[in-house]
């Protein structure tokens, strides 16, 4: 009998290695606490609100997961997102052709951003943290240059399609699920996925095996770039404009979601199941803390920031290496 390799169940039984399952327990506990303190969290309107907040973070975190699993990090995704919203807002017209062309160009841009990051990390051998910090500045600068005070133009038809909803179900929901499943398949069923984990585990070993590690590494950044572009397109559609600061929160939030989801920055461990939970936790915290501030009439946002930090530290306690 061949056991299913990386099924969620098998990961659940290896919590020390695939800590991602643990985070679902944390999430469950958190939901129970939240529902007890602020029952209004579970109202349909609020839940759909949470969901809308969750989708862009989810999309970008899928890409970030690939990079972090491969032992890298991408701190430029936020600027990439902003830049993509502006590319879309600058070139999009109303015709189907124009919309498709804009989408194509935005995806191409994401691919190019990722490729640039990957090549700098692999060929030029600059540490990923530095590379993506620097390219992040560059992308941000270009974004400022493209920024229009009017917000540019995003076709209403594009917005309609991207934000369409049918009752509880919605286009954003399908988008997220779609890319999540593709990512899951790539990571857990294909050679490429094995190599991503192997790369994060020990690059030297993978290279000794005769695998071209450079390609895998560059591919991880390309995936992050394309996912950032998709996130940018979604945001542009939702807000119906482009903006140089739209992507800013997503850089650190995506890293947070991945790490809280059980993929350590050292790479090689964790996965998308955990990242999904991480995304839910990060988005939920934001929403719940808003509700709490409102309910207990707390005036300022600083409680929110402090509580977010405290709760994330508590979540991270689960991943401490037990000696």
């Amino acid at each position: 009998m061949i056991t299913n390799h990386s099924s969620f169940l098998s990961r659940l039984f290896h919590p020390e290695r695939h800590s991602s399952s643990l985070i679902w327990l944390v999430l469950a506990a958190l939901v129970i606490i939240v529902v007890t303190i602020v029952p209004e969290f579970v109202t349909p309107s609020n839940l759909s609100n949470v969901f809308v907040q969750m989708v862009p973070l989810g999309l970008v975190s899928v890409g970030q997961t690939f990079v972090i699993l491969a032992g890298g990090i991408d701190l430029s995704v936020g600027s990439q997102i902003s830049l993509v919203t502006l590319i879309a807002a600058n070139i999009m017209g109303d015709s189907v052709l124009s919309i498709l062309f804009s989408i194509f160009l935005c995806l191409l841009a994401g691919l190019a951003f990722g490729f640039l990051n990957g090549v700098l990390v692999h060929k030029v051998q600059i540490p990923p943290l530095i590379v993506t910090l620097c390219t992040g500045f560059i992308f941000q600068g270009i974004a400022y240059a493209l920024h229009k005070t009017t917000g540019g133009y995003i076709s209403a038809n594009f917005q309609k399609v991207i934000t369409a909803s049918w009752g509880v179900l919605s286009m954003p929901f399908f988008l997220f699920i779609f890319f999540l499943l593709i990512g899951f398949y790539l990571l857990n069923r294909t050679r490429f996925g094995r190599y991503i984990y192997a790369l994060g585990g020990n690059e030297e070993v993978l290279a000794n095996t005769g695998v071209n590690t450079g390609r895998i590494k560059v591919a991880s950044y390309v995936i992050a770039g394309v996912m950032a572009a998709i996130t940018g397109l979604y945001l542009a559609a939702r807000v119906k404009s482009g903006g140089a600061l739209y992507g800013v929160p997503f850089t650190l939030n995506s890293v947070t979601a991945v790490v809280v989801g059980g993929s350590p920055l050292s790479g090689g461990e964790g996965g998308l199941a955990g990242t999904t939970a991480g995304v839910v936790i990060v988005s939920m915290l934001n929403n719940v803390l808003n509700l709490i501030s409102f309910r207990f009439n707390l005036q300022s946002t600083f409680y929110k920031e402090i509580l977010t930090g405290v709760i994330l530290v508590i979540a991270m306690l689960f991943y401490r290496k037990r000696s």
Partner: peptide, 19 residues
């Protein structure tokens, strides 16, 4: 020269995974 985060079979066939 092994990947501790992978299983025995994953390590042995690394680079030669049957399609």
């Amino acid at each position: 020269n092994l990947l501790p985060n992978l299983t025995v079979v994953e390590n042995i066939v690394l680079g030669n995974e049957p399609a």
